[in-house]
Design a protein around this nucleic acid. Structure first.
Length: 225
DNA sequence: GCGACAG
DNA sequence: ATCTTGTCGC
């Protein structure tokens, strides 16, 4: 799609090219599966480890997962996260037996200085609708965060709405939800809420994080039957 | 120049 | 991201 950059200037130039290719209208129909994506690091940040977990929706029952490891080739620079984390994520995604209907990414989507956060980038690289779901803010302004689950306020930048500050659980910090690719903000919010029945973070993200950091899926509650 | 800055 | 301490949920 595009050569992988070595320098920050090259990476920024690529984002400026990609931003026009990001689809901001909703193309996502019925959702049967959602995937959580997370990246961790080993050996003093020299090795990246990506995990992807696919869950049926809305049951949130895991049906597939994959792990990948790869040397790190790009430093962490605010605004250029995707150039550090995307390569190993693509490796993990390629191993899936069941490609998901939508990706829930750990980071921003449109809520990015060049409207090209990691959710936009992964969405473009895979052509899978993607949502940015970040634990903290990169850019944008907003009113005080809501305190009731399901409530949200707009995240804006230069007069445009770029995302939402969403309360997924009372008494916890909000999530920064922004569309990545081929999905609307409204749909992004609804899906994140559908994946956060019991926890602050989406179940997809929690399971991927566990897989990336410990190499195992979290123990799920056994169902009595 | 100074502060802010996804993970 | 990672580390550490205290609190809370399950």
């Amino acid at each position: 799609m595009h050569p992988w950059p070595t320098t920050a200037d090259e990476a920024i130039a690529i984002q400026e090219q990609l931003r026009s290719q990001v689809c901001t209208v909703n193309e996502l129909d019925t959702v049967q599966t959602v995937a959580g994506v997370d990246v961790g690091f080993e050996q003093e940040n020299t090795i990246a480890r990506a995990a992807v977990v696919v869950l049926r929706y809305p049951e949130l029952e895991p049906i597939d997962h994959a792990l990948a490891r790869q040397p790190v080739t790009f430093p962490y620079i605010p605004g250029l996260l995707s150039f550090r984390e995307s390569p190993v994520v693509l490796d993990a995604l390629a191993q899936l037996q069941h490609p998901p209907d939508v990706l829930i990414c750990d980071g921003q989507g449109l809520a990015h200085p060049r409207r090209c956060g990691i959710a936009c980038h992964l969405g473009l690289l895979t052509n899978i609708p993607a949502i940015g779901c970040a634990k903290s803010r990169l850019i944008g302004q907003h009113d005080p965060p809501p305190v009731e689950r399901g409530d949200w306020v707009a995240l804006t930048d230069q007069g445009e709405t770029i995302g939402a500050v969403l309360c997924t659980r009372q008494g916890t910090r909000p999530l920064y939800v922004s569309p990545g690719h081929r999905i609307s903000l409204e749909r992004s919010i609804a899906l994140v809420l559908g994946c956060t029945t019991r926890y602050r973070l989406p179940e997809t993200t929690r399971m991927a994080h566990n897989l990336a950091s410990h190499g195992v899926l979290p123990q799920r509650q056994q169902r009595l039957c």
